[in-house]
């Protein structure tokens, strides 16, 4: 199934810990290649934790795994259609537009992507 969603790259404590171990190490690579999706979006797309999905922005595409987004404990969070991925080489690869509107800062936290998944095993290996 394919849908258009808003990708917001973000920081997580896990990513912060992992980058101290080293950006070329597995823990960092894993954390920065796991996209977080709201449970109801996961259900709609038929995704389970650990499934592989394709994210496409312009001519670029990456394959990442997914997991349900942890929400605040006390509040109703209605942010659907937004997915979150810890910053790293993968989120940068999807930042295909370097335009900064004269500020130096690209729209780093506002990437429109197509999400496709779950992918079959052979496709995500390729």
């Amino acid at each position: 199934m394919t849908e258009t969603m808003l990708l917001v790259p973000m920081r997580t404590a896990k990513q912060g810990v992992a980058l101290n171990q080293g950006k070329l190490k597995d823990a960092y690579k894993k954390e920065t290649s796991t996209v977080e999706i709201k449970q109801e979006d996961m259900d709609r797309l038929g995704l389970k934790t650990g499934d592989r999905v394709r994210l496409r922005a312009g001519t670029e595409e990456v394959i990442v795994s997914c997991k349900p987004r942890k929400e605040g404990k006390k509040v109703q969070d209605t942010a659907t259609g937004i997915i979150f991925l810890p910053y790293g080489p993968i989120s940068s690869a999807l930042m295909t537009d370097g335009d900064t509107a004269g500020t130096g800062m690209p729209d780093s936290k506002h990437l429109i992507v197509e999400i496709e998944g779950p992918l079959a095993q052979e496709e995500s290996d390729g």
Binding site: V8, R69, K74, T78
Partner: peptide
């Protein structure tokens, strides 16, 4: 735009559209 671990320590959460 979404709730986070910080929301858990807040008295008030205001969710704004991206």
């Amino acid at each position: 735009v979404r709730s986070t671990t910080t929301t858990n320590i807040a008295d008030v959460f205001v969710q704004v559209k991206p």
